[in-house]
Design a binder for these strands. Structure first.
Lengths: 205, 205, 205, 205
DNA sequence: CATGAATGAGGATTCATTCAT
DNA sequence: TATGAATGAATCCTCATTCAT
């Protein structure tokens, strides 16, 4: 009995939080970070200001939570790819495609979200951690690729860094563009450059 | 007579603005974007709060102006490189080095500055324009390189985009790192990957 | 039948209120007046916030009631003393001892409670009444003492006032002290001074 | 030149603060501690809310300052008495009179101010310190009186405590009374009791 | 030109109280 | 009866901007 009620409560709580995350994203998207006020989030969510504080300790936690929940799906996708049986090349390919398409789907939000000083030091740490984790994972993939003879023996962490950064840069560029080209195209181009380089065969040193 | 006075006035005005820009950068660097108040800028510059409004319409304009003036030296350097007699390869090399070292020298400031929603829509437009101009310039270099047989015939704007973005990503990564490796190393690594790709010779498709 | 149910209901009601009073005292003691929230009282009592409103109209009434109920035991003790067959001196002695020990036992609570503006005008009236009643009672004792030749013929209400106030002051002093001396000692000292005065025999005018 | 301006500024500042203290006292008197809001103080003083923060860091400092400034005149009077050439008896007499008349003149304010948990721990410490200092001073007077043979050899700190407390109690009683008797009368009565005690000559043990 | 005191809109947060379940 | 989620008025404090000197 009690068990059931607890469960329902918890479910409701999750739903509520999810709704609030969306409200945050909406406000963030429409008004920017500096336009993100508790008042507006509440109004957007159709609840009272005070109610926000039933679900989140304060503004920071609300923001934290919204961002975290926004990144989760992508992170799970990437984890799935990293744990899969694909070859290193295929993994990197899949990562690029997933990332680009995910960010593409959330253009406006991430335009704001990809902001280093988003919400003070705590957030920064979180953000950095996320980035580091991803780079480390990709480095693993790269190392494997080197061992299998797919990649040149470049420093794996560095190469992974360039990969992740390049990919992020591509995403950011797409966010800046008003009418970006088809996603797959950019993905392919980036992979081509990352794998083959831009230099002409004969011109290679 | 009047002419002279006008001129002196204008010069004084410029000097003043320059000083205020520096004050903005200092405050921004030390206190972050959310710590940037007119009060602090004024105190840092050693003038009164009200005086700021004699030189700038409002906070936004002050910030705009400061950022613009912070980017100028780099942009001039890059223009010099682009207009030089260097080979395309050398130009790209120089661009990477200049950019990295410039941002490196202003780490803390740009950590804040590289913030998309920095100061509302006006800034965004400015930022986008800057980026486009740079990409266009690099595209020119790339096109020349293709014509001279240095680079593979890839779409020049796209390749330039990847180049600029990758470079920017590298910069951002360095901004995130607490103790980044020697600058030249990262520059070289990036160029190597951009030129040669990561794929092993034999593995190339 | 109905009568019985009514009675049981009333008893339950009383018990509940008693528990809530204790919760109020606990919270007040631990968190101070400004830390007294309905939420905390409810949690302390192990009930829901809304339930408080089934027993008390609002926060003020709850507080009133708790304070009133906290003072009752002492007042009954004092009434017993006043109605007893003790001599005036002994009565005063007993009053001092009872008061000191009672407040001593509830140090922390009364540290908060001895606050004139505790809860608005209603409380003040209550408090004043309490004080007046006590002074009047003591005045009776004093008058009796004068009649019996124990005390000098001073204005009884005034002397009673000094007595009560001095006693209250002693209590307050003890509340302020972090490690007050043994209770009996202060009680004795106060009575000594009140009865004999501080002046040296020979120096008396 | 600059010196003069500085001076005038400082003077203005003091005047302003003084005015704000008065506003605090007024609001406190009329609305009680819980009715003391920055908004009301500002309105009472005829300035904007924000202006308060030009003179005081926050609410606590404002309150602190108002209280301190309200106590200062009395404290100076008492210091003067303590440092004078009067005999111990006369000093105590003077203290009682000064205190009673001072508090009498500020009845309403002190009705609120004599509140132990006035504004959190900092205030408490201040309040306690004030009380301790006064008790210590009076103890000195008392000790001197004992040495000169005016007073019985009672523990000086304790006796001083009773004196101060009794006096404070008298004050508080007067604050509670709606139409207190002439001040001098109460002062004399208190001194009489404190010096001679209430016991009848013959009844003394 | 320069000043800096004054302003007041705006934002985060708390908490007594209500009411649907 | 009991609950506790929801409310929103109230409060403290910040800071861009103005304006009298």
């Amino acid at each position: 009995m009690i068990r059931l009620r607890e469960e329902r409560k918890s479910k409701w709580n999750s739903l509520m939080k999810e709704g609030l995350h969306q409200a945050v994203v909406k406000v963030l998207t429409e008004q920017g970070l500096s336009g993100l006020t508790m008042e507006r989030v509440a109004k957007e969510a159709g609840i009272a200001k005070g109610t926000l504080y039933l679900y989140f300790q304060d503004k920071e936690e609300l923001l934290q939570s919204a961002v975290q929940s926004s990144m989760e799906p992508l992170e799970q996708e990437l984890d799935k790819i990293l744990d899969s049986e694909l070859s290193p090349n295929q993994k990197l390919e899949a990562i690029v495609q997933q990332s680009l398409s995910y960010f593409e789907a959330n253009r406006n939000f991430f335009r704001v979200f990809l902001n280093p000083e988003f919400t003070g030091p705590r957030m920064n740490r979180e953000g950095k951690d996320r980035h580091r984790r991803l780079v480390a994972s990709v480095a693993q993939v790269f190392k494997e690729g080197v061992e299998r003879g797919h990649f040149r023996p470049l420093p794996d962490l560095k190469a992974a860094g360039v990969f992740v950064m390049g990919c992020a840069a591509m995403i950011q560029a797409r966010l800046w563009e008003e009418t970006p080209p088809p996603l797959a195209e950019d993905a392919q181009l980036f992979l081509d450059i990352f794998f083959q380089g831009v230099a002409e065969e004969g011109a290679k040193r």
